Amino acid sequence: MADVVKRYFEAFNAKDIDTMLGCLSEDVAHHVNEGGVRRGKAAFAEFCDHMSRCYDETLTDMVIFDAPDHGRAAAEYVVNGRYVATDDGLPEAIGQTYQLPAGSFFDVTDGLITRVTTRYNLSDWIRQVS
């Protein structure tokens, strides 16, 4: 189970959205920090396109936790980013850099991710880019 999560994050750092999508089930549930639930690969791909336009991020200090008997995994990491285009309702982007601890939680079935939940401190991010 940790293998698919590791592949997912390696693809994230490589900015390889197609490989990220290949790690997901067709009906993946994507629980977005401070947002709703997006369902399906198409919605996830749209989210990735939006994020790629507004943010340039790399994840470091990755630790992956695995609970295969329960079909779950988690990861803790540091987001190292640059805010490159203003996102709706957020401060203006002028290339600010930020560093933010974050975590993601996964359900995995038959080797594919069926749920992704990502959490970080939005107030801390806003403080860093304001």
Rank of each mutant, 00 (worst) to 15 (best):
M1P: 07
M1D: 06
A2R: 13
D3P: 01
Y8N: 13
E10I: 06
A11T: 01
F12P: 01
N13W: 00
N13A: 06
N13Y: 03
A14T: 03
A14N: 08
K15N: 14
I17A: 15
I17Q: 09
D18N: 13
M20Q: 15
G22N: 07
G22L: 02
L24Q: 01
V28R: 01
V28A: 03
H30V: 10
H31I: 13
G35T: 00
A43G: 05
F47G: 12
H50A: 13
M51L: 13
Y55P: 03
T58E: 12
L59E: 10
M62D: 01
I64W: 02
F65V: 12
F65Q: 11
P68N: 04
G71M: 06
A73Q: 04
Y77Q: 02
A85R: 11
P91T: 03
P91Q: 04
P91G: 03
E92L: 11
A93G: 03
A93P: 01
A93E: 00
G95M: 03
T97L: 03
Q99P: 02
Q99G: 11
L100E: 06
V108M: 08
D110V: 05
T114H: 05
T117I: 08
T117Y: 10
T118C: 12
R119Y: 11
R119H: 10
Y120M: 08
L122T: 15
I126G: 03
R127E: 11
S130F: 08
